[in-house]
Design a protein around this nucleic acid. Sequence first.
RNA 1: CGAGAUAACCGGACGGUUGCGGCUGCGCUUAGCGCAGACGAGGAAAGUCCGAACACCACAGGACAGAAUGCCGGCUAACUACCGGUGGAGGCGACUCCAAGGAAAGUGCAACAGAAAUAUACCGCCGCAUCUGCGGUAAGGGUGGAAAGGCGAGGUAAAAGCUCACACGGCUUUGCGGUAACGCAGGGCGCUAUGUAAACCCCAUUCGGUGCAAGAUUGAAGGGAUAUGGGUUGUCCGCUCCCCUUCCGCAUCGCUUGAACCUUACGGUAACGUAAGGUCGAGACAGAUAACCGUCCAAUGACAGAAUUCGGCUUACAGGUUAUUCUCACCAA
RNA 2: GCGCCCGUGGGAUAAUGGAUAGACCGUCGGCCUCCGGAGCCGGAGAUAUGGGUUCGAUUCCCGUCGGGCGUA
Length: 123
Amino acid sequence: MLKKCFRLRKRGSFTYVRAHGTRYSEKYLTLHFVRGNCKLVGFIVSNKVGKAVKRNLVKRRMRAVVREEWNNLVRGQYVFSARPGITDLSYADIKGRMLFLLTKAGLFKTENSRLNIKNDSQE
RNA sequence: CGAGAUAACCGGACGGUUGCGGCUGCGCUUAGCGCAGACGAGGAAAGUCCGAACACCACAGGACAGAAUGCCGGCUAACUACCGGUGGAGGCGACUCCAAGGAAAGUGCAACAGAAAUAUACCGCCGCAUCUGCGGUAAGGGUGGAAAGGCGAGGUAAAAGCUCACACGGCUUUGCGGUAACGCAGGGCGCUAUGUAAACCCCAUUCGGUGCAAGAUUGAAGGGAUAUGGGUUGUCCGCUCCCCUUCCGCAUCGCUUGAACCUUACGGUAACGUAAGGUCGAGACAGAUAACCGUCCAAUGACAGAAUUCGGCUUACAGGUUAUUCUCACCAA
RNA sequence: GCGCCCGUGGGAUAAUGGAUAGACCGUCGGCCUCCGGAGCCGGAGAUAUGGGUUCGAUUCCCGUCGGGCGUA
């Protein structure tokens, strides 16, 4: 789970990202992205996806994916929105689809920088 | 052994790695970070159907409108909930279900059928007159959900509670039992009054309004001002006079110790109450329980996620457990 | 969170407690035409769902399910 300070929290910033960001879509997911100085992530799971239990489950799984890939992401503001039908997917499926979107958007750092980060963490 | 009934309970367990929420303590530093600790969704958290607490507004008091409830007694902070009883309905039974006052205060409605639907005479029966009328009649026919209490006997021109009987019904009254609803027994009245109040209505009881996005604190800006104005209410009478507006999102409080929960004892048929001892068990604000792995079981794990807080109701739910419990059927003694 | 409203064929709608739930568009079949359109005739298809009150419920009452609106 991410700390509170790395989450998108204001309604205004959500609307800003959705209005000005570039959009990458997939069958069950949509990603909006705006480049910026700090890394912020927000999730939108609407009422049409399911009831409260299913919505929370989807949010948790998406957060888990972001946490695993946190160090590899470029700085900016991310908004993931889920679409109906996503509740039938497993965790691995959601993860695959999110990684597909991120690579499609080219938001992973280059291999060199990844190696550097690994070296830094090792040191 | 089979088929049920009732009541109560559980709602995957354990361990490891990474990670989240507020709290407490310590440290660093300055408002965040690090470390440690214990804690961290439900029986329905759901639907928002009732009832309250709490907050604000209004409030001398009242009327009308409106809404809810409706056998009796109890319980409760309160209730349309709950408990016990009465009456009725269903079931072989254990048992379950019931918005269960008033139709003789008044109004409305009752399609079709039927002669006639709250008043009548179509067929029929009888009498008189006679070829088509008058009168009597509610036994019989047929229609309907409902047709002038039921069956039998007497009676009659034919009939009719016209008269009589009933371990039939109704109304009324007396006695007994019960706090009461009501029940049981006896007497009297021949007995006129269809259904619908979940149609309007009548009677009795209860209800001021809005809801934590209530509201409070701090701060900023602006406006009106002693009455032909402002505030408040569903309406009216009325009451009141430093009050109103704006500040999108972001502050702090409200925010969790409460009509709380657990155990024991006592009272009560029970709901529940009293006393003693013990416990602290989420408090977010884009909103915390996840990801992966291993073992076990009833085995891809149901229904489902707190948002001010309680008491109920309703609805959803894989599977399982308990009861020297109860009923029916079969078999055996 | 709180408050309120609505569900009738595929679509949009009507119905005073009493009809076989009505008419329109669409759909299907037939007639007409060389073929199609238009026109004519005929048919199928519905009271969201579960109970209750009533002799009788689309209508009245209660509970579910689904949809919508307001507030901020």
